[in-house]
Amino acid sequence: MLLPFIFLILLAGGAVLAAQSSINGRLGAKTGVIESAWLTFIMGAVLTFLLMFFFEPAHEATLFSVPKWQLTGALFGVVYMLAIVFAVPRVGTAAATVAVISGQLLMSLLIDHFGWLDNTVRPLDGSRYLAMVLLIGAIGLIYLSHQQRHRRMVNQPG
C-alpha cells in the first residue's frame, strides 16, 4: 500500500525539478544568468547545511577525508545550472527538460558501458541501443516542434 504513495512523492519530486528550472529561468531572464545561479546555490547551501547540521547521522568518513576527486561533482552542477538558466527563457521548460534528460540517460549508458567512475561494467545491448536512438529522436522532435511554432508565428504575426 506504501508503493503508490511513494510513487506520488517521486512524481512530485520530479515536478519540483521542472518548477525549479522554470523559476530559475525566469529569474535569470530578469536579473542575469550568473546572479540567478548564484542565488540558487547559496540558498541550497544554506538549507542543506541546516539539514545536515541537525539531521545527518554521524559517519566515519567526512567531506575532508574522502579523496578529492570525489568532490568535483559541483563543477558539473554549476555548468548545468548556468545552462538551464540560459536556455529556459529561450527554448521553454519542456525542451530544456527533454534535452537534459536525454543527456543524462545517454551519459549513464556510457558510464555503464565503460564502467567509468568505479561503476560495474554493463555493456550496451540491443535494447539499450534502441533507447539511445529514441532519446536522440525525442530531442529531434522537440526541435521540430519549435521550428513549426516559429513558422506559424512568422506566417501569422500577432
Binding site: 561533482g73 555548468v79 548556468l82 545552462a83 536556455a87 534535452a99 534528460i101 543527456g103 551519459m107
Partner: peptide, 15 residues
C-alpha cells in the same frame, strides 16, 4: 542551445 543543454545533462549524470 539544445545541444548545450544536452551536454550539461551529461555532466549531471557524472555528478
Amino acid at each position: 542551445i539544445l545541444i548545450g543543454v544536452l551536454i550539461a545533462g551529461m555532466g549531471l549524470s557524472v555528478e
